[in-house]
């Protein structure tokens, strides 16, 4: 069943177009930076971007920081929002369930497919970022400077970049869980996707609002950018741990709700 879902996902042209578009912006930014040599000042603009001019090694992280606020969540919400509602709208859901695919199994397969998509998208963004960075900016031979001013070896950079990829993937699973939940509620994939994006926009907006500071620690987007803390010395684990914990709670609650809804609903599409 999982294999079937992966075939459906990756034989679909839209999947690859989405991933390609996801990489367009970081590449464009890199080209502009390389041509003009005008980086943002440290502390301004997307994270890591001021550092990449001296070290292309950091560009995968800068690329993730560029797509993380908007493009990556949109891509994830589109794919996960489509997962059940798209089958319902196309009418294939009734044939899958009458096959019988099993409602729980189908939901798990959809979740795994969404996870694989997130992972592939994040890894491709990082890989394209690495290639772009090393070609356009070169790799600093002396090692990489952290936000704390100390220097990391290439090996440390690799390990921490992989940790960052893992963290971003996990954060995006929260988006996928929202979209999947909405996807079991409606027969319109667009509705599910927009629902998930509305949650994220609400969350980002409340995060900037002082009046909402009491609920800020529970907002799904609160710790998204905390992977930057992996590049301090020593690593500042506090927000990363909280971020993982918060996403885990959202995942469990939303997937539970999706399961409860999907396994008991009348499929009339």
């Amino acid at each position: 069943m999982i294999a079937v879902e992966l075939v459906k996902l990756f034989r679909r042209p839209r999947t690859w177009v989405t991933i390609a578009l996801l990489n367009a912006l970081p590449v464009l930014v890199a080209v502009l930076l390389a041509l003009t040599d005008l980086g943002p000042r440290p502390g301004e603009g997307p994270a890591f971007l001021s550092a990449v001019l001296t070290n292309g090694n950091l560009y995968p992280l800068a690329a993730l920081a560029i797509v993380l606020p908007l493009f990556l969540p949109i891509a994830v919400a589109v794919v996960a929002g489509d997962s059940v509602a798209g089958e319902a709208q196309g009418g294939t859901l009734r044939y899958l369930l009458a096959r019988p695919a099993g409602r729980t199994r189908l939901l798990v397969a959809k979740l795994v497919a969404a996870f694989v998509f997130v992972l592939v998208a994040v890894v491709v963004v990082a890989a394209v970022g690495y290639v772009t960075g090393s070609v356009l900016f070169g790799v600093a031979p002396t090692g990489t400077t952290t936000f704390s001013g100390t220097t990391l070896s290439s090996q440390q950079i690799v390990v921490r970049t992989l940790l960052a990829i893992g963290y971003v993937t996990f954060s995006m699973l929260g988006v996928a869980a929202f979209a999947l939940f909405f996807s079991t509620l409606t027969d319109s994939p667009l509705g599910a996707t927009l629902g998930a994006l509305a949650v994220l926009i609400t969350s980002s907006l409340l995060f900037t609002l002082d009046a909402a500071s009491s609920i800020a620690p529970y907002l799904p987007t609160r710790y998204w950018l905390s992977y930057v803390d992996l590049f301090r010395d020593p690593i500042l684990w506090r927000d990363i741990v909280r971020g993982v914990g918060l996403q885990a709670v959202y995942l469990v609650v939303l997937l539970g709700a999706s399961w409860a809804n999907f396994t008991t609903k009348d499929v009339t599409s």
């Binding site: 069943m1 459906k8 679909r12 044939y95 899958l96 096959r99 019988p100 695919a101």
Partner: peptide
């Protein structure tokens, strides 16, 4: 049991053969 429920529904971007193969692989 074989079923045809209202209209037939398939994945439009795949061939008929792939559609049937996926449907068969989707269940026991």
């Amino acid at each position: 049991v074989g079923a045809l429920i209202e209209n037939p529904a398939h994945y439009g971007h795949l061939s008929g053969r792939v559609n049937l193969t996926l449907l068969d692989a989707a269940g026991p």
